[in-house]
Every structure is written in C-alpha cells, then in structure tokens.
Design a protein around this nucleic acid. Structure first.
Lengths: 188, 188
DNA sequence: CTTGTCTATGCAACCAGTTGCATAGAAGGA
DNA sequence: TCCTTCTATGCAACTGGTTGCATAGACAAG
C-alpha cells in the first residue's frame, strides 16, 4: 500500500486536489511511483473516510471546484508508523529481460528495434531528469541553501538519474551483444 | 501478462514442472521477474487449457509424481507474436524513495537503519549474481564457446549486476546525504 | 459553430499478484 | 517417536492496479 504513503508524503509537502496529485505523479513523485487518476481518487476517498486526510472544497473562477486534501493528525501518525517499519527491498520486474532471453528462440531483428526504442525512451527520461535537476537543485535559479526536504528530493532524483544512466549503458550492452550474435535461429 | 511469456521462455530453455519453475523463479528468471508457486500453478493450468503447453505426468521414485510441462506449437507462436509487439518501457516502483522523501517529516535515524538494511540485501544479491556469473559464464567451468542463448542469459545477468551496483552506490549517496542533514525535525 | 483540449471528479469491470491455508509421502535429525 | 524440511500440487479470498467509460463547464483554434 505504498500509494497511500506516497500520497501522504506528497500532501505533506503541499496540500492539493486529486487532479493535482495525478499531475505530480506524472512528474516528481512519478520518478519512482506511478498512479492513474482513477486510482488516486479512489485511494483519496478511502483515506478521507478513514480520517487520514482532511478535505476542503475550494471554489475557483473559470474552473470546476476542487477538493483540496491535506494530511490530518492520524494520517501523519500512520505515515510515521510506516516509516518505522521495515519494508521488503523490491526486485526488478523487467519484461524486456524476458524478451531478451526469448530472442534466443526467435528473430533477433525485432529485439534490436525494441531495444533501440527503449533506449530512446530512457534517453528522453534522463534528459528530463537532468533538466529538472538543473531547474530545481543545481542551476542558478535553485534555492540556496536548500532545506532538508529539498536535499532528500534531490537525492531521490539522483537515484532516478543513476537508474536511467545505468539502464542506457545496459541497453547498449544488449544491442552490442545481439548484433554480434547475428541470426541465431529462424522465426518460429 | 509477462508471466506467461516468462514461463514460455523458461520452458523453451528447458521443460519442467510447476515446482521446478517456481525454483527457477527464485534463481535466474527471478533476477528480473518474481512469481510465487501459487501463481505459477494457476497460470500453467490456464495456459495448458488454452493449448499453449503440453503436459506429461512423470512418475518418480521417492517423490510425488510431477507434471512436466513443455511448450506446444501455439505457445511458441504466442511467444513469437509477443516478441514482435512493442511493450511499455517500465518505470521504477521504489517504495524506499517514498520513505526517503517522507524522512523530511520524521525521524531520520529510522531511515538510516532501513537504508543500511537495504544496502546489505543489495550487497548480498550482487555477490550472488557475481558468483552465478563466474559459475556459468566467466569461470573455468563455463562452456566455451557459449551459444546464443547463453550469451543472452549472460547479458541479462550483466543487467542485474549493473542494477545492483548502481543501487548500492545510490544507497551510499542516500546515507551520506541523510547523515549530513542530522535531525531536520522531531518525530511526529 | 464546432471540435478539441484542459480542469476536475468519479463508477464499474476486470486482471494480476499476494496471502493464507491444505494435502501428502519421503527423508533426516532431535 | 516426533518434528521439521523437501518435493509436489492446489483452492479461496483478498488487494492493488489497469482499462474503459462518463460527466461537465471553460476556453481556444479552426
């Protein structure tokens, strides 16, 4: 149930509506946890009825009303408790690796195209992360000195950057390996 | 539904029972895809009734009978089709990152213990992968020259090794950052 | 004036994966 | 002798997450 906790952290950083949370999950929080708006709305409703969140309906001009959520005391306590519990170090779930091993039984040209496509996506993500790092942390516009929250956000972002760099290097390794092999077997 | 395809690849590499598959998913395949035995049995039953797999009951001495599954022609075709379809480049799902950002609102000492624990687990995994690489690919016992399937298995394993190394380096970065911050705020 | 995009919220159905439990014979150690 | 572990299979209930669909006003482009 890490989505609940991700929402608590995000709302502690700044209260907001389900829609705003969904956009944050397309950006900074989404670097390490994704969620669709439907799921966010559902979890928000559950958390609110459980007393973890407080809601305030905010009227806006030129736009629909929004429900602004913020963390209530029990929500903060629930987060604190979770932070003190150990969690499972998670494992990879990489379907591309399944495809790579599957290429031993099929046409490797299709794999090359697919790996190249993934490489491009990861390259774009890396560029996006680096731009965000420059904007929020290392550029001239960044706040100095940063507070603890910003330092922690930055180290998480550095993790995303390291992940993308590692992935890109690995995909290059995969491409070199597959190209070296040529055509192992005809297509099924 | 990548579990289906992971099973197809694994059974193409070598036919086996649900129990044997479950053990493979604790080892090599599990480097990038995990599954419990319950799920494997359920998916195997579904795939068999869909005609993707063939079963053969094998009597054993001193042990229960087992159902040995192998890939039927429609299964091979289904795998081939999937290999030619593009898949979504997947994103991280890292609950530890949620905890790190949450530490801005709580006691950072708990975070330090948790990160150290994760670091140990990833260190163990790295050692395990490296031992496997030596045993199967780079050591004196390894088959030379390797065939295409082995080359591909090796490049996937190199991905796991790169992932663990990257993760360990990042966790060290996290530890250094958190320790530098001291105690940002009192516990909730 | 119509089409499309943006803000904003939500229901319903489905699917994948986890957790808990159950069975059962063989082997090995306390 | 009993307890645990290993091999081997499976059901049932639940939870977390995805997909498809729906509504509705504001605004901008064509």
């Amino acid at each position: 149930m890490a989505l609940e906790h991700a929402i608590l952290v995000s709302l502690l950083e700044k209260p907001g509506s389900g829609y705003e949370l969904a956009r944050r999950f397309d950006r900074s929080i989404g670097y390490f946890w994704t969620a669709t708006h439907q799921q966010i709305y559902r979890v928000l409703a559950r958390m609110e009825s459980a007393g973890l969140l407080a809601v305030r309906v905010v009227a806006q001009q030129g736009r629909p009303d929004k429900k602004e959520y913020s963390v209530a005391a029990p929500g903060r306590a629930a987060l604190s408790q979770w932070l003190h519990e150990p969690i499972e170090p998670e494992s990879l779930r990489h379907d591309l690796a399944v495809k790579i091993r599957g290429a031993a039984f099929d046409d490797p040209a299709a794999l090359v195209r697919e790996v190249e496509r993934h490489r491009r996506v990861h390259g774009d993500r890396l560029a996006h992360y680096l731009a965000g790092e420059l904007r929020d942390f290392t550029g001239p516009e960044a706040p100095a000195p940063p507070d603890a929250g910003q330092e922690l956000q930055h180290v998480v972002l550095r993790g995303g950057i390291a992940y993308e760099r590692m992935t890109i290097a690995w995909l290059d390794d995969v491409l070199a390996t597959v190209r070296r092999l040529g055509a192992p077997r005809p297509p099924a």
